[in-house]
Amino acid sequence: MPIFISTRESDDQLRKKVREISGQNFQQCYQCGTCSGSCPMIEHINVFPRRIMALLQLGNRKALEESNTPWVCASCHTCMVRCPRGIDITKVMEALRLIKLRQNIDRIELKKLEPEQIADMPQIAMVSGFRKMTS
């Protein structure tokens, strides 16, 4: 997938917001790809973490919004402990989630969960899942 670079697409607001929420300077990313190589969910995300960082550097809101990556990220922190630039990528993912959630847009709907699943799951699954995916 090519990345289009254009000043029109570059959203400085988004960059600022992510920096504010995450406290991370993603401009420091030098695209080594260690994060992508560490991600357990790599087969299930459509934009690898390294590319998320690149898209952020470019301020490409559209591509970021289309990606499922923050929503499949399990906050396992593997990328974070391995990043040679010391960027807390999990915090960047959280910021991307929060930007949506704070607009009152939920990723999962509680009422659509199967009752059997709710009865079966440990409470920590719901507490953490709802925190990450509902506003």
Binding site: I118, Q123, M126, F130
Partner: peptide, 13 residues
Amino acid sequence: PEEIFELYPELFR
């Protein structure tokens, strides 16, 4: 307890 969880999953929010 699971029955309460099913009826009110928002409990976990």
